[in-house]
Design a binder for these strands. Structure first.
Lengths: 242, 242
DNA sequence: CGCGAGCTTGAACATTATCAAGGCAAGTGG
DNA sequence: CCACTTGCCTTGATAATGTTCAAGCTCGCG
């Protein structure tokens, strides 16, 4: 994807800003004011945007691409907390207090970010309560999502977790094809395992079983085709061990 | 605890409001304005404040007591998402969109709440950006807490989860005594199990083992004395199955 | 075509859930 | 004041499930 061609055309980062739901309510003048405070940056796949524990003084908006946010345990395992995509923002915890980043963020592909200093954002909030409200809405959504994940990890059987993950991926990374929904996987098996808190072997085994059962079909190792959405949904709602 | 004696004394719910961090920045006049929009209510242990799926048009502040918030699975298991205490608020997801409650909330003891209609709160946010910023801070904190829990459920061994839970309880429900920290447990074994996504039997067994190891001592069934905080901390940071 | 990373599969092992029985403690009614 | 009852907690035995370790395979790429 081009390096924010639209921004270049419009003589700033207005287009960039427009993409972010939080700023949707602004008029053109305000928008370009906001845009003037933005710094853009590009990362390649595997690049670290920032590390858990680092001080962070900016709000970062994903302009293009996707990233994973994770925490690392003493033994090197990682727990993936989020997959962020175009339009998502991160770093909001660090906007008010001097907290350090609570997770590491890594690019899953080529990523363009728009960063925003803490001071600019705070000033903006005080001037535009509407943005504050939008921000609260976004945070509420994120909380709802976390609560879902939490319930999933806590009470769903492993089969259920995988099914729920596939349903989620289908919505976010899937395209509809004649036979069902084709998912372009954002993560490796190990990544999926790290998201679900299980091992990569278990992911392999469960997916194999699903394929044998005719629920999905793997296409290479980076794509999965959902054939039987109904069964998947049932499995996702399944309780813990029958 | 008395039914908001202070509020009665001050001729309103100003005292009530003062307790909530979000409103801390208001001056007296604003405070009493806010207070005039509040409705108070009392619940007994076991009472349901609201049910998952119900429409909810208010922000609810816990004035006195504690509650648990949980979701139920098709088979009747519950996953406890939060324990809220004095000063915490809930229902923020419902302030902007017409979402229904995403969890059930139940009183763990006698609870007094202060409720706030959605409209009043929205108006307040638009008038007082400071409150909006405070709200964003609170939400950020909650997100940080959820991320912690998530990591805990995802990557920590069961022993680690229990240790982490005890550490958390120690901070929130513990008092320092000569021998260590005495925790007044807010939940039964089953409740703890529902918070950690395991069974009550496993909780019993793990606690017994910890007691045999001299790490804790159970005092009746509703209190636990932490004797060896060091070991507990180590266990909490433990990785998944060594 | 060959190489290597990532994926799959198998077998033994460890852990937790389930099912079942018994114990303890607090509250009740005689 | 004591037996009784009820709810919760503990413990044991067995079965289900996931992890670990190890080996082989596949896909995608140079």
């Amino acid at each position: 994807m081009a390096n924010c061609k639209q921004c270049a055309i419009h003589g700033g980062h207005a287009f960039c800003v427009r993409r972010v739901p939080v700023f949707a309510a602004l008029d053109d003048k305000e928008l370009s004011h906001v845009a003037s405070h933005i710094h853009q940056r590009t990362y390649q796949k595997g690049d670290i945007l920032f590390l858990e524990g680092e001080p962070l003084h900016a709000l970062i908006i994903i302009h293009t691409g996707s990233v994973k946010a994770y925490r690392t345990t003493p033994d090197g395992r990682e727990q993936i907390l989020y997959l962020f995509q175009t339009g998502d923002f991160l770093g909001e915890q660090n906007l008010f207090e001097n907290h350090n980043a609570s997770y590491t963020v890594e690019a899953l592909e080529t990523v363009i970010t728009c960063a925003f200093s803490r001071d600019s954002f705070q000033a903006l909030l005080l001037e535009h309560p509407v943005i504050a409200i939008k921000t609260i809405e976004e945070l509420s959504k994120r909380i709802a999502q976390l609560e879902n994940t939490l319930k999933s990890l806590g009470v769903r059987s492993v089969d259920g977790r995988i099914a729920a993950l596939l349903m989620d991926y289908a919505e976010r990374f899937g395209t509809i094809v004649p036979e069902g929904v084709l998912i372009q996987l954002p993560l490796s098996r190990e990544g999926i395992a790290n998201q679900l808190g299980i091992t990569r072997e278990t992911v392999s085994r469960k997916l194999s079983r699903m394929e044998n059962g005719g629920v999905i079909r793997t296409v290479g190792s980076k794509r999965i085709l959902i054939l039987d959405r109904q069964t998947l949904e049932t499995t996702a709602n399944q309780m813990n061990v029958i």
